[in-house]
């Protein structure tokens, strides 16, 4: 029956595409989490009135993050081609998509991290200083745990936009569900393939949202 409804869908290529999308999202997501956390922490700490307040560094980081968040992703991929070639050695395939995905998502997540850190109670930061805590203690024992629900919720949003980014990357040669939907579905006039690929993207997005919500609730002890 499935054959009749979706005559052009081949299970092995659907599974491969799903795997590729998950692979790109997961790897880029992990790198985004770490880089975003570092960049976000630097943004927060160099911000006005904070421990490392430095107007120049804050301005520089802020501009960097704004620029890369603002460039439309499809253009960012093209702009980053020379950089990707240098880094990965090729411009096609799932690994070649990673630099652009990370450069596109990390500054976005960094902003969410900065906002999450700003919501941490100033009194708690003062108490940490009063106990003799330095920057390391402040970041790893106070800022990150005390903002963990917001960090998890932010990561959920970021991962979902990463799924969207991988679809765009797929169109210009990265593989994954975007590639399947556009090249094998749309361009060959196989609407059933596009439909199934889209449904698969939705399933991935729903799972990310569901897990993200559960983790966020679990972390929140307020």
């Amino acid at each position: 029956m499935l054959e009749a409804l979706f005559p052009h869908v081949r299970l092995d290529s659907l599974l491969q595409a799903t795997y590729d999308t998950i692979y790109m999202t997961a790897l880029a997501g992990a790198a985004t989490f770490i880089l975003g956390l570092i960049l976000g922490a630097l943004l927060f700490l160099t911000g006005p009135g904070q421990l490392l307040a430095n107007r120049f560094v804050y301005g520089l980081l802020s501009m960097f993050s704004n620029v890369f968040r603002s460039i439309p992703f499809i253009i960012l991929i093209v702009l980053l081609i020379p950089f990707t070639k240098l880094l990965v050695g090729r411009i096609l395939g799932v690994n070649a998509a990673l630099p652009a995905l990370i450069v596109g998502a990390a500054p976005f997540y960094a902003r969410l991290v900065e906002i999450a850190f700003r919501d941490v109670d100033r009194g708690v930061l003062e108490a940490t200083r009063a106990m003799g805590g330095g920057i390391f203690t402040t970041v790893f024992k106070v800022l990150i745990p005390e903002s963990s629900p917001a960090l998890a919720a932010g990561l959920t949003v970021t991962l979902i936009s990463l799924v969207g980014f991988t679809a765009m990357a797929g169109v210009i040669g990265a593989g994954g569900l975007g590639h399947l939907a556009y090249l094998e579905g749309f361009q060959r006039n196989n609407a059933d393939v596009t439909l199934v690929a889209t449904a698969m993207v939705l399933v991935i997005v729903f799972i990310i949202q569901f897990v993200g919500d559960a983790v966020t609730r679990r972390l929140d002890k307020r």
Partner: peptide
Amino acid sequence: RARPKIGMIFQHFNLLWS
């Protein structure tokens, strides 16, 4: 280094909720 020997308590307690 001196601060651990100078304890402080606050009006709004300032505990870590986590």
